[in-house]
């Protein structure tokens, strides 16, 4: 079921707190992402932005707060994890492709083995996705034979093959050589323009400005400021935001 919560948000975080040992990484985060929105989370390292992403699909459990994705309450201890992972896809900074499987197998295996979908259908879909990522000829290659940029695009195809409602992108260009960053950002752009709800953690400011509908700025575990890209980058209001943008732009 693809219904939204009462204020139209597909993904919603309320009062989320998380500490690792004695270090408080998230100190009360509120976030709403509507269906079809492209949201970018930026901020200095250690501000908690990757952690926010990882709480949304349940990779990192939270200490306090409520997180919902559609009608699934992530913070419920009895949440159906398979349903959640079907709904929410994720692409990692280190791509994390499975080295012992071919590219096609990497993209197709989860829908077949986890969701039980018929092999034929899934493989067709996988081939289309690889074509969309401009890698149709690499279907039978192994990840080790591909460049970093190609591997990351395969990782995006893998997340898409599960047919999620929202995809989380965790600093997906940070580990790439500069000349490959552009091809991956184009792929992310395409996914967003095709209507997928996307939440990105990134430090590619120009990309965030061009591709996102909304920017969130985190610092020390809270969301300090948010807004439309144009207003956000041209007229930041909070002094912490101004200081950060000063350093990175």
């Amino acid at each position: 079921m693809r219904s939204a919560t009462q204020d139209g948000a597909l993904v919603s975080l309320r009062g989320v707190r998380k500490a690792f040992g004695s270090i408080e990484v998230l100190r009360g985060v509120d976030l709403n992402v509507a269906k079809g929105q492209v949201v970018a989370i930026i901020g200095p390292s250690g501000s908690g932005k990757s952690t926010i992403l990882r709480t949304i699909n349940g990779l990192t459990p939270v200490d306090h707060g409520v997180i919902t994705v559609g009608d699934i309450t992530v913070t419920d201890p009895r949440v159906d994890k398979v349903a959640l992972r079907h709904r929410v896809g994720m692409v990692f900074q280190q791509y994390n492709l499975f080295p012992h499987k071919t590219v096609l197998e990497n993209v197709a295996m989860a829908p077949i083995q986890v969701l039980g979908e018929p092999r034929r259908q899934v493989e067709e879909r996988a081939k289309d996705l690889l074509a969309g990522m401009r890698l149709p000829e690499k279907a039978l290659s192994y990840p080790g034979e591909l460049s970093g940029g190609q591997q990351q695009r395969v990782a995006i195809a893998r997340a898409l093959c599960m047919q999620p409602e929202v995809i989380l992108f965790d600093e997906v260009t940070a580990a790439l050589d500069p000349e490959m960053v552009k091809e991956v950002l184009s792929a992310v752009r395409k996914v967003a323009e095709d209507g997928m709800t996307c939440i990105l953690v990134t430090h590619e400011m120009r990309f965030a400005r061009e591709a996102a509908n909304r920017i969130y700025f985190t610092d020390k575990g809270v969301i300090v400021e948010q807004g439309e890209p144009k207003a956000f980058f041209e007229n930041p209001r909070d002094p912490r935001t101004i200081e950060f943008l000063d350093k990175v732009l």
Partner: peptide, 27 residues
Amino acid sequence: IPKGQWEAAEVLGYTRTVTLFRIILPQ
């Protein structure tokens, strides 16, 4: 085996046991 392999399998919906046998052990 890098932790990322476990995480990638987890976000795709694989359980821990299946991840161990299908993804980790072959490597």
